[in-house]
Design a binder for these strands. Structure first.
Lengths: 230, 230
DNA sequence: TTTCTGAAAACTGTTGACAGTTTAATGCCG
DNA sequence: CGGCATTAAACTGTCAACAGTTTTCAGAAA
């Protein structure tokens, strides 16, 4: 999608409500509106310089993205995600990532496989220099490109939603950092399968990749629990 | 969830916006608001006896369910689903149904497997008497119970959303009726795998079951196309 | 001091009105 | 008669005010 399309798309969809929704989403994911917090309509309206109408519409927009929960006569609250829901999210992400890899293997254009390979190389470089922050960003890019390559709008929006929800887990400290080396070995295997057009194989590799993340998460939680009790 | 819980839940969530959303959803899925139609706010407000605010909020609610699409300064439109999107929906439904069966195999209580078996029998009875309408309803119940048994709220809501979206396909005539006998053989195999706790097997069976539906759909589309041209 | 009661403050849910945009229609010109 | 500019109608986007509920807090009773 080029710039002109972007501009058109913006003009086609942008209204105060959607802009406010983006602001609110940023506030929530950025932690300034922590899980459990109520979205005070009048305060937010004053702060953002709009009336309550757009605030309410924006909150309703976010509600089905799973970021916000409505309680009648009490208002909109930032959702709280507990450990069980986090596991649920990992499971779904695993299944959907697997499906994305499968589709990518079937549909990837040469340019796309090349772009994936390029990202792989840059991630290797980040691993070599132990650049965790850089790796983190590239990792996001990689998974985004994977979804792009799968060419399934719903798959992408579901995955994006799950990723956002994961940010609502109370102890962000438990959002584990991947073992960069192992993680990128996974990526390399996935890209190889995609390049070879081995759909089933790509699917299994993608699913296992996320499952590994889930395992790390569970270990981190168990570890934190242990520390609490000691 | 018992009746008291339902009432509480209702009181907790129900507000004009949500009630209107349910009404609108019914109008859309019932075909009275066909795909592509604009949701005229003033007309709907008058018809439902509320002001435009709740209508707008309800539309925003439905927009995230994928039933409605907003275009700035033009309003809310009932989404249109084309053949490609329909295939995308089938794919996702297949993957998610497989996952649901997998989870069900791991988590089903004896009561739940029994309930699944009971539905199976009633579907057999419907098949025997060639009661397509009855089978249709029981089939919905079966898949709903499957999701219940999987005990994953997101899995359920995603699947429900996909099912609703599928209703937006322009030619509802192409929504194929399953071959009742074959379909129920699939169901029986799935329940057997769940009862046996064979998660991986249940997953594959569930996925294949939906894939079969996708194949029927593709055949029906090809057939319709052929008839058009002849 | 604690607990209950009741009123006030704060806030959400809803409504009707105003502003700006889009769409349809009317009339003009070729 | 057909195409085009202009104008009016219809409609959406936004706002400010009203109604009803929830929460808070002060004061009285135990």
């Amino acid at each position: 999608m080029d710039v002109a399309d972007d501009a058109l798309e913006l003009r086609r969809t942008s209204t105060l409500s959607t802009l406010v929704a983006q602001r609110l989403e940023a506030l929530i994911l950025g932690g300034r509106l922590p899980p459990g917090e109520r979205l005070n309509e009048v305060a937010l309206a004053r702060e953002l310089g709009v009336s309550r109408g757009p605030i309410r519409e924006a909150a309703r927009l976010l509600s089905n993205h799973g970021l916000v929960e409505f309680i009648a006569n009490k208002g909109a609250f930032v959702r709280q995600i507990d450990r069980g829901e986090m596991l649920e999210i990992y499971d779904l992400r695993a299944v959907l990532t697997g499906h994305a890899c499968e589709l990518a293997a079937m549909r990837a254009t040469p340019a796309e496989t090349q772009a994936l390979s390029d990202l792989l190389e840059r991630m290797d470089a980040a691993t070599a220099t132990n650049d965790a922050a850089g790796y983190y960003g590239l990792n996001l890019d990689f998974h985004a490109l994977l979804m792009e390559t799968a060419k399934s709008t719903r798959l992408r929006s579901y995955t994006e939603g799950l990723n956002k929800e994961a940010h609502l887990y109370r102890q962000v400290s438990l959002q584990t950092l991947p073992d960069m080396e192992q993680s990128n070995r996974d990526h390399a295997a996935i890209v190889a399968a995609i390049r070879a057009g081995e759909a089933q194989n790509a699917r299994e590799l993608g699913e296992a990749h996320v499952r590994a993340g889930k395992a790390r998460f569970e270990a981190a939680v168990a570890d934190a629990l242990f520390k609490d009790r000691s």
